[in-house]
């Protein structure tokens, strides 16, 4: 028998009984996961051989792309395009605030005026979320023509769906205390939202808004690829003209833009967190 200096003796660990049912369920889940991955692998035509065959093409592509074309003729339009992308993301986020707020209040238990409105608002939010922003962009490009404007519209529509849902969940999770207090003082639904819920939740709601701004700037890049202006449009153009050195310049500019927006949003969110 081994003992420590303090007189605690080593005790053998008793065997843990595993129920056979747990083992069976675990095995079945594992087998099911394996099967779906095999199906997915076959359906998407995954093939390392094809990748190796394409290596030459990749090498050609890279040799043309490097070094990037950093001449002013390319860089200046690129920076301009990046700014347009930023403005699309900014307006797409800001203009969706009032709609997202109204729908969030209608889609949160506790602030919803009734079950019918609640279900309708939830349904609308789900629909807006389910349609990807690229699809909205394609629709609006068809409707109002090429350019940044349809990009802004597309972001507003999709972002109302996502941000409205995130805000509704935040409102539902709020501390029910202050709203109860104001209701007992005779305040109506909108008054409770304006004086108890929204002021308490400002840091969380703003944090989600900044997160969505971050995502929307990245989305607006993709929207450019389908003709909604900005630097995505330039990337698409240089690929079609086989100017891969220009394309790499655009991508490097995008990298700087995305990192800058990400840092800014993280900084503000950290500040909000400490103020709350």
């Amino acid at each position: 028998m081994t003992m420590t200096d303090t007189g605690v003796r080593w005790v053998p660990v008793p065997p843990r009984r595993r129920r056979p049912r747990t083992l069976a369920v675990g095995g079945a889940v594992l087998a099911a996961l394996l099967i779906v991955h095999v199906i997915a692998w076959r359906t998407t035509e995954m093939s390392f051989a094809t990748l190796l065959d394409g290596a030459d093409g990749m090498a050609d592509f890279l040799s043309e792309a490097i070094p990037p074309d950093l001449s002013a003729d390319v860089l200046l339009p690129s920076l301009e395009g990046a700014l347009v992308t930023l403005w699309i993301g900014l307006l797409g986020t800001t203009l969706s605030i009032p709609f997202a707020l109204l729908l969030a209040l209608a889609a949160a238990r506790g602030t919803a005026p009734g079950p019918v409105v609640y279900q309708a608002a939830r349904g609308l939010l789900s629909f807006l979320r389910a349609v990807p922003d690229v699809v909205f962009a394609l629709i609006f490009v068809t409707a109002v023509g090429l350019g940044p404007f349809p990009g802004v519209l597309a972001l507003v529509f999709h972002n109302v769906g996502v941000m409205g849902k995130l805000w509704a969940e935040t409102i539902e999770d709020a501390d029910p205390g202050p709203p109860t207090a104001l209701r007992s003082a005779g305040a109506g639904r909108l008054q409770v939202a304006a004086h108890a819920l929204l002021p308490s939740l400002t840091p969380q709601l703003t944090g989600l808004l900044l997160y969505r701004f971050d995502v929307n700037v990245r989305s607006s890049l993709v929207l450019g690829l389908v003709g909604a202006g900005g630097i995505g449009f330039l990337i698409n153009q240089s690929i079609q003209l086989f100017r891969f050195d220009e394309m790499l310049t655009h991508i490097l500019v995008v990298l700087v833009l995305i990192v800058a927006v990400d840092r800014l949003s993280a900084l503000v969110r950290r500040h909000l967190g400490s103020a709350a």
């Binding site: 202050p178 003082a185 005779g186 008054q191 004086h195 108890a196 002021p199 308490s200 400002t202 709350a276």
Partner: peptide, 21 residues
Amino acid sequence: RIHLVPRRTVLDNVCAGALGR
């Protein structure tokens, strides 16, 4: 548990008592 809104000013919290009218 008091149930004030901590992020609001004291005065705004007291004014909220009048919301019903």
